[in-house]
């Protein structure tokens, strides 16, 4: 369960303004909003990759901001993360990339690591790509490797930052379905950032919308679809006119 209270952050301009948000355990939470509204920053705050200027953050009761470096390392192993630009390690093969978080977890035999890597590769339809180098992959293929890497440790909390960006409609749908299926069976807590609103809303339990650093909506998927809040309405229905 993720509890965010009054989180604020300013660089040369405010990036997060007093964001208060609660993501219940086992929920698939969709985070939407126009570009540069602070979605990626929020995700990084929760995992302490960035520090806020003010506010509090609790994950499963733990005060994130009070964790020491050593505690942070263990804390982050609770997460799987897909970065917006994939962030694949270009010095390793695809298979080593996917295996990396599992190896860092420790206590898993090499045999089991290869099994799980193989399973992940076929889950994202990249079964033959284990020995390839990330730089030789297309954007969509890199994204899928990123999904595999984010999910290999079966972490209880997973963040997907644009899981289907750059993928064709068929592959997009497959990825969304895969992520939803895995979330349902493992009861993981998921936050998914996506601009593909239609597909996103078919898999989310709850939705939050950000606009210029503020959280302008937080509710169930059904409430979001019916919402009369002008920002939400414009964004969800893709209208050209409105406050955005």
């Amino acid at each position: 369960m993720i509890q965010i209270q009054h989180l604020s952050k300013t660089f040369t301009h405010p990036v997060l303004r007093n964001v208060t948000l609660r993501v219940p355990a086992g929920c698939l939470y969709g985070l939407i909003g126009p570009g540069a509204s602070g979605k990626s920053v929020l995700l990084k705050m929760i995992t302490a990759l960035m520090r806020p200027d003010s506010g509090t953050l609790h994950v499963d009761g733990q005060d994130v901001l009070g964790l020491s470096d050593i505690e942070l390392a263990a804390f982050r192993l609770k997460f799987g993360m897909l970065f917006q630009n994939n962030a694949l390690f270009d010095s390793m093969t695809v298979a080593d990339n996917i295996a990396f978080p599992l190896r860092r977890l420790g206590q898993v035999s090499e045999a089991e690591i290869s099994d799980r890597v193989r399973e992940r590769l076929s889950a994202v339809s990249l079964a033959e790509f284990g020995d390839r180098n990330p730089s030789s992959l297309s954007g969509g293929q890199k994204k899928r490797v990123g999904v595999a890497r984010a999910t290999i440790t079966r972490a209880p909390i997973i963040f997907y930052d644009e899981p289907a960006a750059g993928l064709d409609p068929v592959t997009s749908q497959r990825i969304f379905d895969l992520l939803r299926k895995e979330q349902e069976s493992a009861k993981t807590t998921v936050i998914m950032v996506s601009s593909d609103i239609d597909r996103l809303l078919t898999v989310t339990d709850r939705v939050g919308m950000m606009f210029r650093g503020s959280l302008v909506f937080d509710g169930s998927t059904a409430e979001a679809a019916k919402s009369e809040e002008p920002h939400v309405k414009q964004f969800i229905h893709g209208l050209a006119e409105g406050p955005l």
């Binding site: 995992t47 390392a73 192993l77």
Partner: peptide, 14 residues
């Protein structure tokens, strides 16, 4: 710049 350092940190690798 390509967030690989963040990815390392997320895997508990300093």
């Amino acid at each position: 710049v390509t967030e690989q350092i963040d990815a390392l940190r997320m895997c508990a690798a300093d």
